[in-house]
Write a protein that binds this DNA or RNA. Structure first.
Lengths: 370, 370
DNA sequence: TTGTAGGCGTTATCAC
DNA sequence: GTGATAACGCCTACAA
């Protein structure tokens, strides 16, 4: 491995001068010396050892991503994070705790020992412990997606309540008054807020809240099917279902089919999280699309900006608006029309002092060529 | 930040001894000293600085993943890689070139400068240059998924030809003789092999090869729709289509719908790459599922094993078998039957001296709880 | 304008 | 058994 000494020797100069060239300190340096050194660097194809640089400079130019679940949402968001990192010259380390809350803490320690400059975190639970650990470790961080209600740190989240409300209002405008919903256990803010939006929409439109129409299920394959069947097998079954998660939406559709019911004849369904497959279902599925890619970009850029500014600013909360994608039923589709045709309802941000993030970004799905 | 010196001071010993404890060198050490030091470490919650360790030991315990496209396949495979890394105590850096072949090379350099111990690479093109760069950089590596025909290095791939043949044979057994196929441009082995499998199946069953039934399209949204429409609008249109990529399958289904045709009444479709949504289509879609998660695990463990064994072994090629998942048509589904019910055809490995990877692993989809 | 020397936090090779 | 001490490869006052 060629080192800075090799370059110095070849160029016949001291290594401090080489170091200056590497770091772009050309302030008081003769053109001649600079030329000699750059020549030598090229000749040896020398690249500095980041480890040594980092040890000295106390920064690694690497940020870490600590997520509870690298699920479909995060796998898209990850690309946004990665893209922003590349653009800003940062490396990216990733870790997943796979739903073991202890591992989130462990992973943070791991990242710290690798000396990442900052962290994007999205734990599943224990946000408080995570927050405390992060501050005690004195590591710059940004919460993303999932957060903690009393959190005072930087964060990038989607306005989940607004998304849920919009989904519900779509159903209400279609004339539904008995709307069921299905959720995963309320372990984090994202999940709680979806329920909040459900309730808020009912309240807003003067509809009664029937707790028995709310089904909360444990994570796991197929648990949603049972839940939805319970909902559908009642005599006073709901005429619409708001599914709050993509995995649950799969279960809901399976359940509806198992119950021998028809969408949208017997029951309407709106799902949270969009999928490339939604337009291909029969009928095409209306969903709330969360701009995952964009969130990844925002989270990374907020963190990096934080790393690069000297003076600490006050915590910033960036909210990203989900989009309701209303898809026509298959019957209404003209044969020559694109099956992907849909109306996109851009939710408006009602909150005041928050960063507007309504640029016309992609939803993260289909945002790259294949 | 607390250092090894702080620990030494607190314990009243030299830092050499502390270092021994950290590295588990208890060979010639009194119980007493060990106790004192462990106590001090705990008290200060001391964690060694990986940078300094790595600088000295010349290993970082980090591996890198360099992929051309963090698409749906790799986003699942990534979880496998990550899981194996965590199990073996390695960190993971990721990078994506987003279809810019130059960036693959750039990312490799970046990883090298960060001094990763090894690399899992899956470039889109220029496998030869990548291979050469990797060897010239003297960095241990494993090709994964996509590879290069003349490659002699370690690699973990799926037997794409076998997968394609099986898909085709399914269609042939259903009585189809005019089968169209749709592919992305043949830039890498994975893509070429799918075409190869298409041809091989025809040959094997004595069916004629009609080049005009083979549609090759550029990457990009919706290009597949045009291609499939060309296929379907001919008077002698094929009675079945083998779609070689998930994105293309979406386009194929859209195209079929736009042409006003019915699956499977007018035309049969088999897709490469499975999706959670496949069983929910009407009719459920038959696909070739590629065990992405498993491939990630295998790639990581092969690399790590390579890193940890002293003597270089001869290059190893691990082949993973895709699985054909035959789904019943909706009409045949009993209402109380799971919509996900499907026959899984486990392809048999016909090759001789290759590692068997037919354990009953998951396909990567649905392999985690949500 | 350039070079010398010390130190970043460890590990490893010696002595003792 | 334990402790100095010299690297590891780079950066950066400070001196020249």
């Amino acid at each position: 491995m060629t080192t800075i000494d090799d370059v110095a020797k070849l160029a016949g100069v001291s290594k401090s001068s080489v170091s200056r060239v590497i770091n772009g300190n050309f302030q008081y340096m003769s053109e001649e010396m600079r030329g000699k050194i750059e020549q030598a660097i090229k000749e040896l194809d020398y690249r500095p050892n980041s480890l040594a640089q980092s040890l000295k400079k106390k920064e690694t130019k690497v940020i870490g991503l600590v997520v509870g679940d690298l699920n479909s949402f995060w796998s898209v968001a990850l690309r946004g994070v990665q893209e922003e990192c590349m653009r800003s010259g940062y490396g990216l380390m990733v870790s997943e705790s796979a739903w073991d809350p202890e591992k989130d803490l462990e992973n943070i320690h791991m990242m710290k020992s690798k000396r990442v400059d900052g962290l994007i975190v999205s734990p599943i639970r224990q946000h408080k412990q995570v927050d405390e650990l992060l501050t005690s470790l004195d590591i710059p961080y940004v919460f993303a997606d999932s957060t903690w209600d009393e959190v005072v740190s930087d964060q990038v989240v989607t306005n989940t309540v607004a998304g849920a409300v919009e989904a519900m209002e779509h159903l209400i405008q279609l004339g539904h008054t008995r709307i069921g919903t299905i959720l995963f256990t309320l372990e984090n803010s994202v999940r709680r807020e979806r329920l909040e939006g459900y309730k808020e929409a009912l309240r807003k439109h003067g509809l009664p809240l029937d707790e028995s129409l709310i089904k909360i299920c444990k994570a796991g394959k197929g648990t949603g099917v049972e839940a939805v069947l319970e909902l559908l097998n009642r005599p006073d079954r709901p005429t619409a279902i708001f599914s709050t998660n993509m995995h649950l939406t799969l279960d809901v559709l399976k359940g509806v089919r198992q119950a021998g019911l028809d969408v949208p004849g017997d029951i309407s369904v709106v799902g949270y999280d969009d999928s490339e497959w939604a337009p291909l279902l029969d009928p095409p599925l209306t969903t709330v699309a969360v701009p995952a890619f964009q969130m990844g970009v925002k989270a990374a850029s907020l963190l990096i900006q934080k790393l690069q500014s000297k003076k600490p600013k006050k915590p910033k909360k960036i909210e990203i608006m989900p989009k309701l994608i209303i898809r026509h039923s298959a019957a209404e589709l003209h044969p020559k029309q694109s099956a992907d045709e849909a109306s996109v309802v851009q939710l408006t941000d009602h909150s005041a002092a928050k960063e507007k993030t309504n640029e016309n970004h992609s939803t993260g799905i289909n945002s790259r060529k294949a």
